[in-house]
Amino acid sequence: MAEDKQLNPQESLQLITETIQKAKGGFHETGVSAILWGSVVSIAGLVSFVEVYFNFYIGFDIWLIVLAAIIPQIFISIKENKNKKVIAHDEKFLDATWMVYGISIFALIFYINIVPGVSEQMITHYDNSQLFTKNITTNELTIWKPYIFSQSSLYLILFSIPTLVTGIARKFKPMLLGGLFCLVFFITSCYTTNLWDMLLLALAGIFNWLIPGLILRSRFLKGKTC
């Protein structure tokens, strides 16, 4: 590009438009994080579905791989930040959205694990009561332990929030559609049993993150080779 080439107004306007377009294409995400989380959630969901459907147990809670995925994610984030040559205006806002989402997931795990026990204690100690279920055929009474109904629905609605925000902010249709699919899965999960909820979680992982991640990856690699 010439140092001091004088431009006419039309050339100037064309240069501005072209350069702004070039800048837009400059901050493609690598897609690695989305692929990681999409794979982990879909694998965990599918394995849980197969376990319940065929009535077997693989020997450990498959959802632990979601916790394990935090370790590679830390390394991915450090590497990507090191290699980042440009920071977009919405970057901080989106980073904060995903960070709050991560905290909310942990808060939800805490809620799901703590609330049933606390509810049982409250019912027993404060109300001096106990909950039972009654078999309407045999009239047999069984002690009922409180639990959170349709837990997967809560995860699904949480999954959709940062994905939709990113899809809207970045005008990235695959993530926008993924987030909308996730909302549909959320509504569906309110009517389905735990077995099918696991399948919905797996589908959410695929549509929310795995497919958009693969698209981002392909765009990033194309941009690198251009």
Partner: peptide
Amino acid sequence: HSQLRLAIISLLIGVKEAEFTFIKEKT
């Protein structure tokens, strides 16, 4: 009103900040 300076400013208006190598590559 010079080609390269206008390109630099047009690039920077669309981002929060950019490294020298990024500007060099895009311009």
